[in-house]
Amino acid sequence: MNYNWNWHIFLEPNPMGTGTYLDMLLAGLVLTIKTALLAWVLALIFGSVIGVLRTLPSRTAYWIGFCWVEFFRNMPLLVQLFLWFFVLPELLPRGAGLWLKQLPNAPYWTAAIGIGFFMSARVAVQLQAGIGSLPRGQKNAATALGLTTVQSYRYILLPMAFRIILPPLTSEFLNTIKNTAVAITIGLIELTGQARSMQEFSFQVFEAFTAATVLYLLVNFIVVTGMRFLERYVAIPGYISGK
């Protein structure tokens, strides 16, 4: 293989005049983190609401939850981003479609919302399982004390269900971060996008993607460690894994 390794490339100025190649990658990393965080917040909010709907006795609520989950989890993420980014503006009335196309940072908002909704389906299913794993008597006990359904979920069921699903939620958070790489296809120049530009400008493909890999690993390691602390912080003395 005829390849010229050059690890000093990161400190050389990039052709865009925005500093070094390393600055380029770090700018991508910041965008990756911003996209992932917004997507994760959306996934948690929508996933919680939909997950709860799927556990209510109401048929309507169940069907809303069912449709949401099946719509967002049964289509590849890539296709969903294309739908939001390319198809949705065409389906809307001309004015609204135009406004959407001219929106500043459109790839960012599309990616965050698209990935957020995609992940919300997964959060919803896990929360549903978490609530379902609680003894039926818990809901009965809360109800018998006079708590309303909303209060039962707020004070009893959700605090327990979220504790139970915390470990798999960690994985979903990591998936959210990794999934932002798909947004390169709608023009979001996040970490993977910047690594690719770097490769195209400098031909140092291995260095560029090694750096991207290390940065992804670093971010995910921070998330895993943070979630470990959170798990320990909310653990209940004497209960399951709590010590």
């Binding site: 008597g137 818990q138 009965n140 006990a141 018998a144 004390l145 006079g146 708590l147 009893i156 327990m160």
Partner: peptide, 26 residues
């Protein structure tokens, strides 16, 4: 329901609340 007390076979205390908070919540 708040005017009728109920005790269950499997106790159904709320595991994430301290004993005194179990009594205070409702």
């Amino acid at each position: 329901r708040s005017r009728v007390g109920m005790v269950f076979q499997h106790f159904e205390l709320f595991p994430h609340l301290r004993i005194v908070d179990n009594l205070c919540l409702a």
